[in-house]
Amino acid sequence: MSDKILMKGNEAIAEAAIRAGCTHFFGYPITPQNELPAYMAEKLPEQGGVFLQAESEVAAINMVYGASAAGARVMTSSSSPGISLKAEGISYIAGAELPCVIVNMVRAGPGLGGIGPSQSDYFQATKGMAHGDFRLAVLAPDSVQEAVDLTRQAFDIADKYRNPVMILGDGVIGQMMEPVEFKEIDSPELPEKDWIVDGAEGRERNIIHSLRLKTEDLTEHNWKLARKYEQMQEDEVRYEEKLMDDAEVAIVAYGTTARVVKTAIKEARAEGIKVGLIRPISLFPFPKKVIKKAAQQVDCFLTVEMSTGQMVEDVRLAVNGERSVAFYGSPGGAVPSPAEILVKLKEVME
């Protein structure tokens, strides 16, 4: 028997966060992420940390803002409608250059939508989500183990760049139980948090703010943020390639959808179709180089998403017109079946 334990995605992320040194959690109930705050409520106080159920998502993200400003590793989690409410606070957090980790177990929208798994918050997550010129780093696991590994990395990325990081899952990732292993990982060298507000005892005072009334200050600040995002593009791109060596078609898919695509590819390969998978793990920064490179090899691309077509725009940007990029979507809260994907794949190849 291995050291693996069987855990739900939501609970495994919470445990991974605690092991990553997360001491504070603020949240508000919403399906399908409720096991995550419940786990935090159970475990954090035992470790001397703080769990607080806020009066709203708006309050929760602003508590995150305060706790991060005060120097803590802090997390919040929600699902799509709740993330929309958090958007304001996330803009302030990014503007004030504070680290935090936000989990979005996406459900199908718009509005109240449904509670089924969905990837319809891709635009929201990767295109800045709220007012102003900023980005989140966005990590999208396709298994409970990867959710655990990425949670740890998310805190480090947040601290390294002083920027919010989002774990983008869906109902399946949150609710699914799979065996996980919590590996002991050494922390990377991270910058000292010399900017926190904790009472300016024996030092110069610190001010945390996003207001910059002088245009030259704000211009400089926004370029500084832009450079961070460029640096992420250099250092934080994560992806998986599967069976791409001889592929004539590449399917691009992330998260839960990528799992289904793997089954579809197995079946297609059994029929002699040379198809491979490119799975973006970091949705921002997007693995555009690997897709651009694949465009020199494959005849065409097929993007599969649980939406009406969001990531496909980034795939098309990366391919830059050199190959056709087809799309197959399932936007209502249902995971597409391998059979559906196979039908679309054959249609695309004609």
């Binding site: 504070h24 708006v58 803002y65 305060g66 400003a69 005060a70 803590a72 802090v74 507000v197 945390i208």
Partner: peptide, 26 residues
Amino acid sequence: DLDMLEAAHGRPPAVATGIKRVHPDK
């Protein structure tokens, strides 16, 4: 002349909560 933070409109009590829960002695 203190450690200061500027919050979004209406959110100071939530932000203060976050800070105080990290530094209950401050």
